[in-house]
Design a protein around this nucleic acid. Sequence first.
DNA 1: ACTAGCTTGTGAAGGATTTCACAAGCCCCC
DNA 2: GGGGGCTTGTGAAATCCTTCACAAGCTAGT
Lengths: 212, 212
Amino acid sequence: MKHIAESTVRRLSLYLRFLEEGEARAQDTISSGELARLGGTTSAQVRKDLSFFGSFGKRGLGYHVKDLIEAIREILGLDKTWPVVIVGAGKIGAALAQYRGFSSRGFRVVGVYDRDPARIGQRLDGLTIRAESELERDIAKLKAQIAVLCVPSEAAQVLLDRVTKAGIRAVLNFAPSPLRVPKGVALRSVNMATELEILTFALTNRIEGGPR
Amino acid sequence: MKHIAESTVRRLSLYLRFLEEGEARAQDTISSGELARLGGTTSAQVRKDLSFFGSFGKRGLGYHVKDLIEAIREILGLDKTWPVVIVGAGKIGAALAQYRGFSSRGFRVVGVYDRDPARIGQRLDGLTIRAESELERDIAKLKAQIAVLCVPSEAAQVLLDRVTKAGIRAVLNFAPSPLRVPKGVALRSVNMATELEILTFALTNRIEGGPR
DNA sequence: ACTAGCTTGTGAAGGATTTCACAAGCCCCC
DNA sequence: GGGGGCTTGTGAAATCCTTCACAAGCTAGT
Ligand SMILES: NC(=O)c1ccc[n+]([C@@H]2O[C@H](COP(=O)([O-])OP(=O)(O)OC[C@H]3O[C@@H](n4cnc5c(N)ncnc54)[C@H](O)[C@@H]3O)[C@@H](O)[C@H]2O)c1
Ligand SMILES: NC(=O)c1ccc[n+]([C@@H]2O[C@H](COP(=O)([O-])OP(=O)(O)OC[C@H]3O[C@@H](n4cnc5c(N)ncnc54)[C@H](O)[C@@H]3O)[C@@H](O)[C@H]2O)c1
């Protein structure tokens, strides 16, 4: 397959959300124009995004909502359930562990880990926080391929190395430090300070030529 | 000024972090090559990014760390303190309100708001959770221009409309729903499910031609 | 003061992504 | 069964972003 741009994947995820809302409203078909309007893009963009993966619509009609949902789920790999481990049960780790937006989307948090003896054993929704020393064994046992890192910056690289050695193949990182991943492991980092700084940049440099 | 790509702003934020680390290690100068290595990009990219805003280096030497820190801070608008209000004191709102990565970077959380009477009055670090009915008055009084939305999807658009009417000019949104902003207001949304889905896409479609 | 050795700043080239624009296909109605 | 009205899928064009490559400038050492 040709290389797919990240922006395309991001938009597919967005389309999927709109389609699911449409399905909930018993909507039968949807046009690229409507998806575009919802997603703040253009109909040509929507069609191009989909065209990388096949041809899912009917000319004159649009896309069948249920079919397109199924197609995008399969493209994104959401046609299965992904076990996820969360490393670090601090403020953000705990919030994510209890976040229902994950479970409703094919992700199942199967383990939450911390080093702090005071936290180990505490319950978070249906999960008990476990000792980080159990990480390797659990990852193997649960066949988890995705880890979410919510530990302090200093610990992030070490934990990343450990979980990838144990079999993790994709990492979502919240620590604001750059990480190195072994080849074959996917990594994404969410840096909230950077997000705010993109906003202050916009506020600061908007003197002329109004923003988007 | 010419239009600046978001990717450039994002990298500037990253360079700033490395520069600050360099400063902490008493490093005097740094070359575009070193910044590039740290940031996982190329030296030409670093120089191009900076060149949009001026010329900050010395040929043969590199960049003076302290000077470049100051320059990038000014470019990003970090040479002042930004009062920020957090709307929604649930799991993620509370985590962000207590996040030290913001305060250390020129952002000061000046108010946390919720609708739930059980939460109003509770303390979060040094802050008391306030009633959302106080939002408009406080935004005006505190001259806050940035709001972080941590409320359920259904409430997000309503709250966004309210805070922008009250004077907010930039919004960081964590609800996974598309929002409309009035012209002149900057919006960024962080969608954690999408981040995970970009990872599952990578895991699913990596059969041939290894990832990144 | 001159040279060797780096490193910057930047046009130009190259590559990637988005937008344009239109032929082709499908539905529905007459 | 044919025509009007939409909408898709997609090459080609346009735009945006990154990489190349090199002249110019600075430092340090002699
Ligand atoms: N709180 C936020 O809103 C927020 C926002 C963005 C990013 N972050 C980042 O997320 C990370 C966590 O932040 P937080 O606010 O939740 O901090 P926190 O201190 O509340 O939580 C960190 C947790 O990690 C645990 N930990 C430390 N070392 C560990 C190890 N080796 N193995 C397992 N667990 C370990 C600690 O015991 C603690 O429970 C930090 O890197 C922070 O910069 C936090
Ligand atoms: N928890 C997470 O890790 C996480 C991750 C990503 C995104 N999100 C999103 O962030 C938002 C909040 O999630 P959460 O997990 O913190 O939920 P939560 O239920 O813990 O918190 C939501 C809070 O918003 C408050 N609220 C509701 N309506 C309000 C209003 N009109 N004015 C002021 N406050 C109001 C509620 O009282 C509650 O305290 C949701 O949109 C969620 O999808 C959460």
